[in-house]
Structures are given as C-alpha cells and as structure tokens.
Amino acid sequence: MDEISADSFNIRDYLRLELFPHFLCPGCGHGIALRALLWAIHELGIDKNDLAIVSGIGCSGRTGAYIDANTFHVTHGRPLAFATGLALARPDLEVVVITGDGDCLAIGGNHLIHACRRNLNLTCMMLNNEVYGMTGGQASPTTSATRYTTTTQSGSIEPVFDACALAAAAGAGFVGREVTIQTPALKNLLRDAIAHKGFSFVEVLSDCTEIFGRKNDLGESPEMIMTQKSTMRPASYGVVGGNIVDEPFRATNLKTGILTRTDRPEYGAAYRAHAAGIRAARKS
C-alpha cells in the first residue's frame, strides 16, 4: 500500500511565469515534453539552482527560456558543444540539453556523435517533430519519406536518421525514445536518463501540428500524438534490448522506452581521475 503521490510537483515552481503564455503553437508537443522534463527534475530532487539547461536554435531551443534555472540558449546545432564545456567545467551542475531534430541531427550531428562517444555526463533531450518549425517548415533529417514540407513540395525522398540507433551506435551510454502522449513514461525515461552517469540521449516524438501536421493531413494535435504512440512499440521498461509488444497484433516500427543502457566510463569522472593521477605522480 505504498502511497506515491504526484502532489508535490507543481510545475509552476519550475517556470518563469512572467514569460507566459509561451510562444509555442497550439498543440505543440514541445510543451508536453517540457513538463515531463521538469517533472523528472522534480522527482530527482535536483535544485533548480544547480540545473543548467543548454538549448540550441529552433522551436525546441526556445523552450529552455521558460525554465526557471540557469538557461543557456546558444547557437544553432551547438548546444552539445556548449554543454560539454559547461559540464566539464562544472561537474556539480546537472546539465540538460534541449535540442531539435534539425539542430541535433543536421547542423549538430557531428557534436551528437562525439558527445555520444565521449560519454560525458549530459542529458540530451531531442524534440523530434520531423520539421524545421521555426523557419517555416522545411524538411529535416527526420522528415519521413513522402512527407510534404516547404522544401519537399512534392514529398520527401531522402532517407531519415533513426536518431536513437545513431546515438547508440556512436556509443551513448543511455538511449531512449518516447512519445509525448505518454507523459509519465517520458518523465520516467528522462528521469532515468538524467540519473544515468554518462551521456544520455532521449528522443521525444513531438508533434508540429500547425506547420507539419496540417500540410501532411496528419490530423489535429490529439490525433497526432495518439498516432505517434501507436506507431511506437514499447521496449520493456528497464530492460536493455527488452522484448516488445507487437506480435501478433501490432504492425509498428520504432521502439520506445529505454533502448540502450550500458555503464561505460563517464568521461568527466574518468578525466578527473586521470588528472588527479597525473598530479599525484608529479608530487611524489
């Protein structure tokens, strides 16, 4: 009869209320993801004074400003680079990167793979809405084939990244994917991602109703977020490479939940230990 309660989480404690209402379009999944992130922060008991949010450019990047923490809205594609410096210089801070599919995978793709490889204690939340929303709806590295955007007016023909597979292949210690409609699951995933010592990559399937959904006849926000969920299949929570719910009933494609969790040496700690060894050797 364990009574767990969500009572203590009041999102307003984590928001810069004077900036509201926020600038996101109606039904934008980024807002839901933001809630999940702050909820996870709350559950982990992270003091917002010790929380650093580094975000890139785009709709995703703008969300950081609404968080009442140390927020850094940096250059396009580079939040992981900034965060790397910040986290190495300030291991006492909890550094979370908010980025988008274009920010993270296109212009910032190089930083992503190296951040994964380096395995520094960072959490990267990539809000994937399949489109460059802020610039008016151009195709991104995750825009599915046949989708219409302002730069794929006859339907996209480019293959897409599976960002999670990319991150895992690049060596990220923790990789997960979740949809916004599963807010508590997303919260749990982010919570585990932040708690994970090492580089954590979380892809959030967000929806861009106004610019992308309309153009592709994907329905309004409620339907979009529901569709996202149903095209996913959950990996067994907490089990690495766990089984998935689909046979014999579901035709699905991407997995959700924790996809990879390995304990590789965390770069920051490894570096500090290495440096301490060097200093000790010099003294003796």
Binding site: E178, Q182, A185, P234, Y237, I244, V245, F249
Partner: peptide, 15 residues
C-alpha cells in the same frame, strides 16, 4: 490484444 498498452500513458503495460 495490447489495447491497454496502447492507451497507457506510462508504458507501464508490457507483455
């Protein structure tokens, strides 16, 4: 049938 898993907002329903 997995319908419950499909509506679960926490991914708490698993095979």
């Amino acid at each position: 049938c997995s319908l419950c898993a499909q509506v679960c907002p926490t991914n708490s329903i698993l095979a």
